[in-house]
Amino acid sequence: MNTFRSNTLLDVKNIRKSFGDIPVLDGVNIELRRNEFVSLLGVSGSGKSTLFNIISGLLEPDEGKIFIEGADYTGKTGRVSYMYQKDLLLPWKKIIDNVSLPLVVRGESKKAAREKVAGYFKTFGLEGFEYKYPFQLSGGMRQRAALLRTWLFSRDIMLLDEPFGSLDAITKFKMQEWLTNVLSSIEASVLLITHDIEEAVFLSDRIYIMSDRPATIKEEIKINLARPRSRDIVTTGEFNAYKKHIYGLLL
């Protein structure tokens, strides 16, 4: 019992949610352990973002509970960090101030926040962009800044909702590699939503496959690929076997 508690950071228990008379989530169970990378794969409209809204406390479930380190966080905001497909950087703030946002929301001064966040720019490959405005950065760089902001808010539980969904294929590819590198040098537990099977297999320790609406978890797949992972693994037989299996489940 105790070992289970200390291992499970986030416990999503039997979540149900309907909008009007349309059931969207039909008893979803998910777990996230410390420093784990877990993906949620499901087709469009299956209720993935709805689930994230519930985990982040923005939305109340009709039934079920969200536990974080054993405590009930159902309907409570401010505990987990949430990153959207859009970078949602404030165009009027320099990158360093955008990244400082979570600290400022917690009541720190702009100056103190800047001092605290400046040290992480290097790790996130954003060195030299501190005093630029968002429009001066490429889409990929903006997503890096958004990810740093997300991580600074809550490094232990990060919800990433298709963070690379709006990037072109090449940039997306580079960002996935970049993300595995960054995550190997920082502490973070990540729950990722994606449509992209290859992205899920490449990045994850575990993958949950969601069914069509109303969504349940169809299957949980453990990805036993050694880390650190490089791009080369996507052509290995092991990798392709995972892909093939998941395609079978989704189609």
């Binding site: 923005l58 905001t77 401010g78 949602l88 404030l90 808010f153």
Partner: peptide
């Protein structure tokens, strides 16, 4: 952008903070 407001809420920001940090500058 309503997603921006949701992002601020998810960070636990109150109405005043959301107004000051996002809404007001966003309306400039």
């Amino acid at each position: 952008d309503s997603d921006l407001l949701n992002l601020m809420r998810s960070m636990g920001a109150g109405r005043v903070a959301i107004f000051r940090i996002v809404k007001f500058p966003g309306a400039m």
